[in-house]
Nucleic acid binder design. Structure first.
Lengths: 344, 344
DNA sequence: GCAAAACCTCAAAGCGCTTTGACCGATGCC
DNA sequence: GGCATCGGTCAAAGCGCTTTGAGGTTTTGC
């Protein structure tokens, strides 16, 4: 059943039927009712392909997920981000198109999405410092929103980000207040912009108290359990072992916990741990009582906000660059406590 | 730059240019070269919207991810599955469209995708027993491939699945061979078809050795760390505690490990644990030496296979239903060992 | 009572491709 | 030389919508 057939059935022209269904004012309300009823009765659904060609809009949004071909790691936060943004898209009649492409093909992918007219805009994931994608997209004129920010980009752009610096600063201060002085940072890969910001927050907090960040206590690794475990093993084996850990992710935190407990120590008593908690649906930080003390910010919510922002800039191309900075909340769990006596 | 402009520039008709670029034989090779060169030079890319309308094909595939609105849990395996299938799509010039919809809207979503002509086929995720989606899709005539199977479906359909029954049977036998008699099963939610199959494999192995499955040792919970921990806590607190655990997922296994170590026990010596390992990229089971003994099957590979199957049935609609049953491999880790003496 | 305004409705063009059927010159064959 | 064949090219129709500009009818205002 297409528009023409429906129009014939109603004894109207396609024009009128189209207008009636799309809510244009220049059609008689009585006629509109008739049309809508008939459309429902005959199960009419306008062909998306035709609409797209006729309007020149794609009614689709692209998420280009970079796949690091060396590590082959899919970012675990990605599925929750998608869940959040997908909700917004479907509510607004947009499709979400996913492209998973090797790092080096990303620019080409954007060019393609743009010039073939597959999407009306894109979300940029996992920005690096000095990320070249931002310039590429600006040049292309394809509307986009970055999840995160890229230090060093000369141009201004739309982004949704968590205040990573501040979150790690606060977490560090919290540990310092508990008397900890040897605080290990298990960071994500510092090619990622957010990881750099987190490190800055950490060092800022230390230096503000007159402490020198110690290289031996800082690692930058992919955010997996095993990496967390390994880093903790090292930090605990040293002469003056770390008394506290700051982890970039829940998974790393779980690895730290394993290392701590494997040594017969107790988390929260012998060793304190704070994680950054993305509030992933399948990786909850405990239930009523949080396991880990954490700085928390929902990545799903970030997905929602980024999607809303993108739809906004798609429909209003002349808007100035939009920004949204989210603050992570510091939630108290069972993994932190005062530094053991004699260890400060 | 569109086809018409390019044709004018070349002094050819759009027909010829289109044919030259699409590899049709009825165009002179010399002409073809000229056209291809000009297309490259002018950065011509055919408009996807126009191709779709003209050909009546969408060159797109849908993944409909059910979102359980109560638990709001995104299946963590989903991102790796997507990574696998996405690769296949982009290699074949297809787009991947993701819809994340509440359970109850799924049928409507399929109908929509079909009648609006948004996709040429879909992948069905997380089938339940007696899943109604299969009938719906058959009725619609929309090509589809199920990741998993649905017991109770009267019709035949395309699927890619792991032999879950056999995997759990083998794992159970392995534990039995080590002398374990009180083997706890921490299963996924048994609304999911795969979970039912896993339980059957487990009970089959037990009864084959004359053992009665004990209800107190079997739980069916969402596959999170906390749930694994809680289940293990219970199973270990009983009068005759479990000496071994069979877990449906890595996360549950990590929860079990926490419970075991929290009691001062050692995994692999005091308590044995086998997990099902989906080989998720961000949740690797150790590196060179596996942490957990596991039945392993890569969900990313399953994604690849399902995508290939879908593209096949899309292009050849008259094919009989395709099936692909993958066998999980049993890999030996550090989490299993003979039952402690006096505990058999 | 009549022109102007307001209200509905429609025919037709267009979005940028693919594809059918026709055309035409060159070649081959008897 | 004439007929069939073939290779290369094109004009035009269509895919199923939206949207422009025009037209016809009714209402309004004086």
């Amino acid at each position: 059943m297409n528009l023409k057939e429906l129009a014939t059935k109603l004894g109207l022209s396609p024009t009128t039927v189209s207008r009636a269904l799309n809510g244009y004012p220049e059609v008689n309300e009585v006629t509109r009712e008739r049309v809508i009823a008939a459309a429902r009765r005959h199960n009419y659904r306008p062909n998306a392909r035709a609409i797209r060609l006729a309007t020149g809009r794609s009614l689709a949004v692209g998420h280009v997920i970079p796949l690091d071909t060396r590590s082959e790691i899919m970012n675990p936060i990605f599925s929750d981000f998608i869940a959040g943004s997908g909700e917004v898209y479907s509510r607004n009649g947009y499709d979400m198109i996913l492209s998973i492409v090797p790092d080096e093909q990303e620019a080409a992918t954007y060019r393609d999405l743009m010039s073939r007219g597959t999407v009306d805009g894109v979300i940029v994931h996992a920005p690096k410092t000095n990320d070249t994608r931002i310039g590429t997209l600006k040049d292309l004129g394809l509307p986009f929103v970055v999840h995160g920010r890229s230090t060093g980009s000369e141009v201004d752009y739309n982004w949704v980000d968590v205040n990573n610096r501040r979150a790690f600063q606060r977490a560090t201060e919290f540990l310092l207040d508990l008397g900890h002085r040897r605080i290990a940072l298990i960071n994500g890969l510092e090619a990622m912009d957010f990881a750099v910001r987190r490190r800055i927050g950490y060092t800022d907090a230390l230096t503000a108290r007159g402490l020198e960040p110690e290289a031996r206590l800082i690692v930058s690794v992919e955010m997996t359990e095993v990496n967390g475990w390994r880093a903790a093993e090292q930090a605990l084996a040293q002469q003056a072992p770390a008394t506290a850990f700051l982890c970039a992710s829940m998974l790393q935190g779980m690895g730290v916990r394993r290392a701590v407990e494997g040594r017969g120590l107790k988390m929260g008593r012998d060793v304190s741990v704070i994680i950054f908690d993305d509030d992933l649906s399948y990786l909850r930080n405990g239930e009523d009582v949080p396991i880990f003390t954490a700085t928390r910010s929902s990545v799903k919510e970030a997905g929602r906000l980024a999607a809303e922002m993108l739809l906004m800039v798609v429909s209003q191309p002349d808007l100035p660059p939009q920004h949204r900075l989210l603050e992570a909340e510091l939630i108290l769990g069972q993994s932190t406590g005062p530094v053991p006596v004699g260890d400060s």
